[in-house]
Design a binder for these strands. Sequence first.
DNA 1: CTTGGAATGTCAACAAGGCTGACGTATTCT
DNA 2: AGAATACGTCAGCCTTGTTGACATTCCAAG
Lengths: 168, 168
Amino acid sequence: MAEGTSPQGGQGLLFLTDEQLRKGIEAMFFAYRGFTADPDRILAEKDYGRAHHRAIHFIHRSPGTTVNNLLSILGVTKQSLNRVLRTLVDDGLVRSEVGRVDKRERHLFLTEAGAALERELSDAQRDRMRAAYRAAGSEAVAGFRKVLEAMMDEDMRRHYETLKDRGR
Amino acid sequence: MAEGTSPQGGQGLLFLTDEQLRKGIEAMFFAYRGFTADPDRILAEKDYGRAHHRAIHFIHRSPGTTVNNLLSILGVTKQSLNRVLRTLVDDGLVRSEVGRVDKRERHLFLTEAGAALERELSDAQRDRMRAAYRAAGSEAVAGFRKVLEAMMDEDMRRHYETLKDRGR
DNA sequence: CTTGGAATGTCAACAAGGCTGACGTATTCT
DNA sequence: AGAATACGTCAGCCTTGTTGACATTCCAAG
């Protein structure tokens, strides 16, 4: 009775109207805007963009990651990533270290300044996420994650799970 | 007891670690990629982009909407929207009608061709949404929507609710 | 030891889709 | 009559994505 979508709550077939699906689509659209709004404001002040944020985020999450790995996580071309990475290295936010075992690879790390910016950005983003979680309640949070995970492409889910494991 | 995040399930304070919040952030990032992947493929074939998709989507949802209204939903400048809208009108996907009560306004409608493309795009997007919903279960769906709604900016939530009401 | 292929970096050119600023025109409101 | 509104448009700029071509460096296989 606390449901809204179907009486058989949980598993099994759902009765999904186009309307319900459209609402989900629009919720994704509007929510993603909110999701990026706070970091975007901070980035604009510092003349960086979302691309820089993404690079910084995943370097922070996987210190020492290679360029190729980052490439496949972000899903852009190396030229595109390189442009962003170069400015971050030049500005002293990211350190690129030649691999010791395979010297062709570059391992990426945040410098102190990079870590500081990362903190500033993710604080802002986490604040909103936390507020949304609190407003929605813990049951909602579990469902939120479940649906998002089911929405990912296979490759992306692989990356997502890998990052997940690191934290455990 | 079926919870994972907190013992007081539902309302009240949640114990949210940075790790949990980060996972949510990454889930949003990866899921949004999946969310746009299918329409993007269709659009690429037809030399359109996401901007066209968004315009088409919201014109479909609110037939006869004005340019100004669309502008505030999409959150872009009129120059940006106009570029997109012009190609859609030129290509015969959108019809722009001078307002009868206020002749300064233009009311936007999808033509048959426009409606056909809208269907193709939203079919693809709904298929993924439906699959995700089914995989996650109906309880998850309710939570998903709840968190997303809480994540929106005020203005966006207003638009979201307005679209919501139309369907009822 | 040479050679093929992988990983990386870099140059150039281009496109989509944001943005600002300025201006014109029709229409409506005060 | 004059101000404000709705819309369109021109011009120019930025970010971030794309392709294509090419150099370098290194690993590994023959």
